[in-house]
Each structure stands twice: as structure tokens, then as C-alpha cells.
């Protein structure tokens, strides 16, 4: 089995200007690798939402991306406040986004549901006061 390509990014908290760099870098890499446009799109959208969540809700974190020949695994890791009720957070429209984020057009409570929609597998590990890790798998072929 061939080793995956690993990409790593730092995600800075409350940095709305550069938010999205990790997912757009990943998207470029997937394009370079010849992954189908539809799969690239799904991976990029799912990753972008998780990345933005780390920026808004957790004061930043890291992204790790493992690209295999037929799928990609994306992990967004933060040391933020954690999510008290994951199933509530997963509901469309549920949001605790601060006003500043709402002014920037975030906070519709659609991020996590969107990740679910665009990924083949999604898991959230979270602990109050410790942080959250969102793991997303997108397969290249349907």
C-alpha cells in the first residue's frame, strides 16, 4: 500500500481574512492529483466548513489531510471549548455563532449538516474544555 500524501495547515483563530486557506490548498492539491471535479468540490466544501468552525468557535487549530489513491481523510483539530451536545449541533439552523461572525455571513447553523451532506463519513470527537476533532472522509468514486 502506497503512503498517503500528507498535508498540514495551521488554522488561526478569528482570522476571517485568511480563513479558508487550508481547504483551498487542499483543493489545489486534489486538482493536481487528477481527482474528479465533483469529489474535489465535496472535499473542499466539507473541509471549508470545518475549518471555519475552528476559526469561529474554537480560536483556531490545525488541519491534517491524508490523500490516498481513492479517498481523502481530513482532520480538523482544535483545542477550543468543545461541543456540549453534538446531536443538537448537527441540526440544521442550530448556531451559537457570535455577532461578529454573523455580520460576516456565518452562523446559519448549516456548517455541520453541510459537512455531513458532502462527505462519505464524518465523525466528531469532542470534550468540554479540551477541544474538538472533526474527521471527514470523502471517496473519489461514487
Amino acid at each position: 500500500m502506497i503512503e498517503p500524501v500528507k498535508l498540514e495547515y495551521k488554522i488561526r483563530g478569528s482570522d476571517f481574512i485568511n480563513a479558508g486557506e487550508a481547504s483551498s490548498g487542499t483543493k489545489k492539491a486534489l486538482n493536481r492529483l487528477g481527482v474528479s471535479p465533483a469529489a474535489v468540490k465535496r472535499a473542499a466544501i466539507a473541509m471549508y466548513e470545518a475549518e471555519i468552525n475552528a476559526v469561529i468557535h474554537a480560536d483556531g487549530g490545525e488541519a491534517e489531510v491524508f490523500i490516498y489513491s481513492d479517498h481523502v481523510i481530513i482532520r480538523i483539530i482544535d483545542q477550543g471549548p468543545g461541543i456540549p451536545d453534538v446531536s443538537l449541533a448537527m441540526q440544521e439552523g442550530w448556531s451559537t455563532a457570535p455577532d461578529i461572525a454573523r455580520e460576516m455571513g456565518f452562523g446559519a447553523g448549516m456548517g455541520l449538516p453541510n459537512i455531513k451532506k458532502h462527505s462519505d463519513d464524518m465523525s466528531i470527537e469532542t470534550e468540554i474544555g479540551k477541544g474538538t476533532t472533526v474527521t471527514i472522509t470523502v471517496r473519489f468514486q461514487v
Partner: peptide, 12 residues
């Protein structure tokens, strides 16, 4: 922009 038509080679 694709590095190689074969994804294994592209990954490498």
C-alpha cells in the same frame, strides 16, 4: 494541471 493521469504516480 494534473501531475499524472495515474493517481498513484501523481501522488508520488
Amino acid at each position: 494541471l494534473t501531475l499524472d493521469p495515474d493517481i498513484f504516480k501523481a501522488l508520488e
